[in-house]
Design a protein around this nucleic acid. Structure first.
Length: 347
DNA sequence: AACCCGTGGGG
DNA sequence: TCCCCAAGGGT
């Protein structure tokens, strides 16, 4: 049987019922595809419900403040997705009369949409035979065809893209694309794939040669940078604190945080107080205590953040203060959200 | 081309 | 201070 037919037959019997599969509205499909980039279905589900409820049309999303969108995205990670989503929503609303572009070529022009997402939307919503290439597709194809070209090399990307495109069912490209992804996610899994009950077991190269565990091949590991964060949590007499937006290029752009002093190791109270940055922030007398006795290690994909939260009691209130009662309105990294939960519980 | 961007689950 | 990976994209 043809590869795509076997796949679609499997899919018709085993597919998951997911909310975005009940619609072909490109706006909803777009939302789901952005949320699911590098993100598991279980983690993205509630965010999809929240966004489609609060922003039922692209105009609702376009009219929201960026900070509101980021607040709704809080906890999902990769926040540039939310910023780009919002940027493109405004573009669709204002320049395209709210009409989502209908071809791969036009869709991929939108910020935040690359080859995968453009292929997914074009095939699912507009029946255009453009094959998706995601982690699942790499795994299924590398195993079935026994291809050991690294999937994160430029040669690998080209090779797999060509192969994927040659396999697509042009009469039902959207179903085919979702079938190969679901098959990868549920059956041809990274660990412990279900080879014993696999519809492809009679022709899968990796199964025949016992190479399942070796495929797909991925080149080079990422290196992790260690950083040492000291957040200064200010408590004033009138229940205010300082929270400021992270600007610039690095992590958590557009999210808010307490004043931050970064050091090159875990430091103690004396070292903190004597630092130039601290003196600049608090020239007057303060009372300081460390909230978390053992530093919190917050792990990002490329950084490990060794974090201490310092409670700083002071009488003077700077210009940029906010009220503690309004702190939950601000989008914050999960590291800070977790601190706030523990801190408020203790009060 | 290589590097950066979050968070959470599972072995 | 493990390891991998997840419906990737931007620079």
């Amino acid at each position: 049987m043809i590869f795509s037919n076997t796949l679609i037959y499997w899919y018709l019997q085993n597919n998951r019922e997911l909310p975005w599969r009940k619609t072909k509205n490109p706006y909803f499909i777009w939302l789901s595809e952005i949320m699911l980039q590098q993100t598991r279905v279980a983690q993205g589900l509630s965010y999809y419900q929240k966004f489609t409820t609060d922003f039922p049309t692209v105009f609702n999303l376009a009219n929201a403040d960026e900070s509101t969108v980021l607040k709704m995205w809080q906890g999902l990670g990769y926040y540039s997705r939310a910023r780009n989503l919002h940027f493109s929503a405004k573009q669709i609303a204002n320049e395209l009369n709210g009409e989502f572009p209908s071809t791969y070529k036009e869709i991929i022009k939108l910020k935040g949409i690359g080859d995968y997402t453009a292929s997914a939307i074009a095939s699912i919503c507009f029946n255009e035979p453009t094959a998706v290439l995601d982690g699942n597709v790499y795994r299924v194809l590398s195993r079935y065809y026994g291809i050991d070209t690294p999937i994160n090399s430029s040669a690998g990307i080209k090779e797999f893209k060509t192969l994927a495109q040659s396999l697509i069912d042009e009469t039902q490209p959207g179903t085919y694309n979702q079938a190969i992804m679901d098959f990868g996610a549920l059956h041809c899994k990274p660990q412990n794939p279900l080879c014993e009950t696999c519809p492809f077991s009679d022709s899968c190269v990796a199964f025949e040669k016992k190479l399942t565990k070796e495929l797909p091949v991925k080149e080079k590991k990422i290196k992790v940078r260690k950083r040492y964060f000291n957040f200064l949590v200010i408590k004033t007499d009138n229940d205010t604190t300082i929270l400021s937006e992270r600007k610039g290029k690095g992590i958590w752009q557009g999210l808010y945080q307490f004043p931050l002093i970064e050091s090159n190791k875990v430091i103690n109270k004396d070292e903190l107080i004597l630092s130039e940055e601290f003196i600049n922030l608090f020239p007057l007398e303060t009372t300081i205590s460390l909230f978390n006795p053992k530093e919190i290690v917050h792990k990002l994909s490329h950084q490990h953040l060794y974090t201490q939260f310092w409670i700083v009691e002071t009488a003077n209130s700077a210009e940029t203060t906010i009220k503690w009662s309004e702190i939950e309105k601000y989008p914050v990294p999960i590291l800070i959200a977790n601190f706030l939960e523990a801190f408020q519980a203790e009060k």
